[in-house]
Every structure is written in structure tokens, then in C-alpha cells.
Design a protein around this nucleic acid. Structure first.
Lengths: 104, 104
DNA sequence: AAGTCATGCAGGTATTTACCTGCATATTAA
DNA sequence: TTAATATGCAGGTAAATACCTGCATGACTT
């Protein structure tokens, strides 16, 4: 997994909105997604390309349409590497700070 | 929470390394962190500023040093909003794609 | 008080990013 | 086959980003 690509992809509100749109209805076409975005189609294409490069979205061509599907695997990997690790020590880390603020 | 700030902060390898360094040893000073980074101190300062703006790191001044602490709360919020949601439907989404690829 | 050490602030540059317009291609419909 | 529809590709620009250098400030040490 490339954490850089995944986090960069998630760091834009338009791309997170695209994921939310696909979450509501998976398999939407480019045009369908564009209708909800308030920007030129080409811009949306670019955003979807970034999501695909990060492997967060997979697309399939059907006739003249391109259908888009969420791939939840990279998000799971991000969770394993970046979230769970911090979750475990959540309380003890806060405890470190508290101690420091209290003057050792 | 500002998802934009949090994801942008996490989207840079230097900043993720800073979090890893703080995870290993919480409460390090700027100079201490710099020693592990291979870039000018000013650049590291900037990265730490971004982590602080995203509330992923909190700093405390002690004498002439600035000590840095991980704040795990925003990561937890990201998990709640962006990861858990996708985790739940992980299998069913894969199922959608499989069906589509098989031609409905 | 003078010197050293840790950090802050101002600004400058090259690259990346997020938009756009315009034109080309490929598929379905009439 | 002609028209309409859905998407792809080639650029172009303004803003954001990730670095840097140089100088200033503030805190311990002697």
C-alpha cells in the first residue's frame, strides 16, 4: 500500500464527496457523479483518476459509460497501520501530556 | 473536526514520520525530532505546525525547548467518520463489483 | 553580562495541485 | 449514416506546498 497516495486522495473534499456518493449508490457513471459536483466534468475525471491511482475506486467500462466502485481495502490498510496503533495507546498518550503539563 | 486538515497533515511522509517518532518517544523537542529528519530545522517546524493545526500534535514550551505530544483524538474521529463506515460494508461492496464484472 | 543553545519569523523559489477550455474518439439512437 | 451522448486527451493558469537562507529573539550557563 502507498500511504502517500491514499492520504493525498482522501485529503480533498471533492474526492471524499465522491466516495460518499459511491457509498450511497455504488457503480455510478462519470456523468452521474458529475451531476452532484458543481465543477467541470474534466475536473471530476481528474479526481476520480486520483482515487483510482490510490486504489480507493475501481472502474469498469460498460458501453460508452464508465462505472465506478468503491474499493474498501486500502481504507482498511490505513486503519491497520495508522489508526489502530494509535487507538491502543490513546489513553496512555494523553496521560503523558497531562503529566508534562502538571510539571513532570 | 476538520477532515481536510487532518488528511492533508497525514498525506506527507515527513509528517507521518514525525508521528511515528513521537509514537516511539512522546514529548520530544524540535531539535530532537530534527535530528531524525534530514531537512532544515525550519522545514520541520513547518511540518510540525501543520500537525498542530490539524490538532494531531500538541506542544508545550519548557524553557527554551518546545516539547511535542501526539493527540490521538482526531485520528479516532477520522476512524469513526471515514473508516468504520467503510469497514461495515466492506464485504457487500466487493460483492457489488464482482456481480458487475460478471455482467450483472 | 557575554556566550551559547533552542526556537521563531520573514521571504524567496521550484514543484505540485485543482481548476479550466477546446478538441478528439467511441458508442448508442434515429 | 447522421446525430446525440459519454468519455478521453492535450494543454494552460492561479494557488498551494515543500523546501530553503538569513536574521531575530529568548533562555540557560559561566
Amino acid at each position: 500500500m502507498d500511504a502517500d497516495d491514499i492520504f493525498k486522495a482522501l485529503s480533498d473534499p471533492t474526492r471524499r464527496k465522491l466516495l460518499d456518493l459511491l457509498f450511497e449508490k455504488n457503480g455510478q457513471s462519470l456523468g452521474e457523479l458529475c451531476a452532484n459536483l458543481d465543477m467541470a466534468r474534466q475536473s471530476a475525471t481528474q479526481h476520480l483518476g486520483i482515487l483510482e491511482a490510490a486504489n480507493l475506486v475501481t472502474s469498469v467500462r460498460r458501453g460508452r459509460e464508465k462505472l465506478h466502485f468503491i474499493n474498501p481495502v486500502p481504507i482498511h490498510e490505513v486503519y491497520e497501520r495508522w489508526v489502530r496503533k494509535f487507538e491502543v495507546q490513546r489513553l496512555s498518550l494523553l496521560h503523558d501530556l497531562k503529566k508534562e503539563l502538571e510539571g513532570e
